[in-house]
Computed example of a mutant assay.
Amino acid sequence: MNSENVLIKKANWFKRFFTVERERWFQYGETENDAIVTINEMKKLFLDQGMSYFSQFNDPRMITSISLAEIIARSKKIEDFGAPLDLRLVLLIARTHKFLGNDRDAKDYAQWGLNNIGEAKGLIKDFEAIGLGSF
């Protein structure tokens, strides 16, 4: 049984998930034993590298420290951080501010997102929900 599932090996938020040269494709093999070996390999990779990746999000200030000015300027800081320079990042920041109770900041990011929605019409309701106090 072959699979095209992916577990990423490198530690960079955006690039880890979307850059082909940083991906490792796992073949599950033809037998149950082949699949078990592959799953154990995936588990080891996650424990060795995945946990350190996710640990960077233990402090939400990592997300809320990104300013609208840095997003607008497409800051090198954000590139180094590995974040996508688009509305999804702004939505993540707005939601994080909302979660932390920073309603004014959440609304500022949500309004910027709405003002710059472009073709991403599917995100309108998400930004509006933050602006209305729900999400």
Score class of each variant (00 low, 15 high):
S3V: 13
E4F: 11
L7R: 05
L7E: 05
K9D: 11
K10E: 07
A11V: 08
W13V: 15
F14V: 02
K15R: 13
R16T: 14
F17I: 12
F17V: 11
F18V: 04
T19R: 08
V20I: 12
R22E: 13
R24K: 14
W25P: 01
W25Q: 07
F26A: 06
T31W: 02
N33C: 01
I36P: 11
V37W: 00
T38N: 08
T38Y: 05
I39M: 10
N40T: 07
E41V: 02
K43A: 12
K44L: 13
K44T: 14
K44P: 00
F46G: 06
L47T: 10
D48Q: 08
Q49E: 15
G50T: 00
M51Y: 07
F57D: 12
F57I: 12
N58I: 10
N58P: 09
D59W: 13
D59H: 13
P60M: 09
R61I: 11
I63M: 14
I63F: 09
T64A: 03
T64M: 03
I66G: 05
L68T: 01
A69R: 12
A69P: 04
A69E: 15
A69Q: 15
I71K: 01
A73C: 09
R74K: 15
K76W: 08
I78Q: 04
E79K: 12
E79P: 03
E79Y: 09
F81L: 15
A83H: 00
P84M: 08
L85R: 09
L85Q: 13
L87V: 03
L87K: 03
L89E: 03
V90Q: 05
L91K: 07
L92N: 04
I93P: 01
R95P: 06
R95E: 14
T96N: 06
H97L: 04
K98D: 12
K98P: 05
L100V: 06
G101K: 05
G101N: 05
D103C: 00
K107P: 01
D108Q: 07
Y109D: 01
A110P: 00
G113Q: 02
I117F: 04
E119G: 07
A120G: 00
K121R: 11
G122Q: 09
L123N: 02
I124F: 06
I124S: 07
I124T: 11
I124L: 09
K125I: 13
K125G: 05
F127S: 00
E128W: 00
E128V: 09
E128L: 11
E128Y: 01
I130A: 02
I130R: 02
L132V: 03
G133D: 06
G133V: 05
S134H: 13
S134L: 13
S134M: 12
F135Y: 14
